[in-house]
Design a protein around this nucleic acid. Structure first.
Lengths: 268, 268
DNA sequence: CCTCGCGTTCCGCACCACGGAATGCAGGGA
DNA sequence: TCCCTGCATTCCGTGGTGCGGAACGCGAGG
């Protein structure tokens, strides 16, 4: 076991990243740490410059310096780099948060999200969150556009899983129907069978000029903001689709002008 | 005074971000912490998933999870978002690290850098580093293209500073000569009067379609890699200039096309 | 075989982080 | 005005825990 205070501090720092502003009481509830301990940890982080105590807002928030804790981390594939700007732009315009997810073995992992830029996000920073392929919007948007034996390979892996969210892999015809529907529509949504119910995600694939599915791009919204799922999809799916194709274009420009290959590596 | 172990852990984490791989000995030298203490801290961070002990490489490195420590921080202006992808692409092609700096009162602050992507960087992650306007490449590339009373305003502020790096603000004609030279060339380099001497930076402004100087974009290289500064500039200045103009284009596309799509899709 | 430098483990002591209890403070209700 | 409630913050005595010098194991080099 490691140094307790450090583990606690890291947890606190993670929690702080999940909300724009955090009261001691909230952190107490979420981390289970005694309040005096929280105050002490937060004061330490504040002295070090990672945290600000905004008395006006009545709580603590992360400050700019936290970026220095991860600035040296190699950010990952060029798709994410190319997609960020579009994701941010869409969120600024439409408010809802955008996420970019990359495939990783039997799921997709959120590698970038504009949650911190969104004033109305149902979630708070989903970066590094792993999502299932058969139930989640971002997973389905990726999977449904994968073809041939790569598709079969993934399904085989999923079959070996006992995660209830992967259950569909045992029902080939149902699965096929879903995939066909998604392909025809050009976008996927989160299954209505999984939590959370008060939000939904609309996602589209990002497909390279060569036809390879590189990532998926999703928008998450509160269901209560629209009278029906259809309405939300009609509104945002085209936006996501054109953004996805713009990202593919950018990737092309970025690679051709400096002649590099699209790199599909991802870290775990 | 805060909790010592936390302060130490944060320092270690920052140091880890400054190099792709870090041995205990290096960290010991840089942080001054006893080796057993370092091992204990690193083990704690490793258990928590923020750090990996790569025995093959013989050292510690930050892992993907560190991004969760800053994922909630609002990343900043769209220029940086638009510029990242280009910066990454250039570094992948030409190896040297690229930085994007934004103006901040009497200086510029590095808001993004590809140092982690560069195998040959003279520095290591300069994110959040503040640079002077009159001596640093990124500062000069910004300042020299600012016009009119905005320029005068900045100089007035600099005059009130007693930082030796701002001394030039007291020599108007010399300053004017420098500014003219930079404008004519279209790029700036770091003053030969300031450290470090074994590297240099070539920087260009990023100017919006409306003519406003938004940021500066710089490339840093080891002077020993070229026979003269001229040679390096001849090679990289055009690359930076076209990237800067591409970034300005992207910014334009990002802001205009996203809003056009809104209007188009509303009827569907 | 020895030596050097390294990462890692050991272990007893000092000290410092811990958290329950107390305090301070602001808002709300009677 | 006074009391109450919920909150953040401070206090302070105690015991656990982080500390780091010393020892160890190991691989490389001579």
């Amino acid at each position: 076991m490691g140094i307790r205070s450090i583990e606690r501090a890291m947890n606190v720092l993670q929690e702080l990243n999940l909300q724009p502003i955090n009261t001691i009481a909230q952190l107490h509830a979420r981390t289970g740490l005694p309040k005096p301990t929280l105050v002490r940890i937060l004061k330490t982080l504040e002295d070090a410059g990672y945290v600000e105590n905004d008395v006006r807002e009545g709580g603590y928030r992360v400050s700019a310096l936290v970026t220095s804790l991860s600035s040296g981390f190699h950010k990952g594939p060029l798709v994410v780099e190319a997609g960020r700007a579009w994701a941010v732009a869409i969120t600024r315009k439409h408010k809802w948060p955008i996420a970019i997810a990359l495939p990783d073995y039997d799921g997709v992992v959120v590698r970038f999200s504009t949650v911190p830029d969104s004033p109305v996000s149902p979630f708070h920073s989903t970066v590094n969150r792993r999502l299932n392929l058969l139930t989640r919007g971002l997973g389905l948007a990726y999977l449904a556009f994968v073809e041939g034996e790569e598709f079969d390979l993934i399904i085989d892996v999923l079959k070996r899983s006992d995660d209830p969210e992967n259950a569909l892999s045992h029902h080939p015809d149902e699965l096929e129907r879903l995939v066909k529907k998604i392909r025809a529509a050009g976008f996927a949504t989160r299954s209505s069978l999984v939590e959370p119910r008060n939000s939904n995600t609309i996602a589209v694939p990002i497909i390279s000029k060569g036809g390879k599915v590189l990532a998926s791009l999703g928008l998450t919204y509160f269901t209560s903001a629209f009278s029906s799922e259809k309405e939300a999809c009609a509104r945002y799916a085209p936006i996501l689709q054109s953004a996805a194709s713009a990202i593919a274009d950018d990737l092309e420009r970025l690679s051709s002008s400096v002649s590099i290959e699209v790199d599909n590596t991802y870290t775990t």
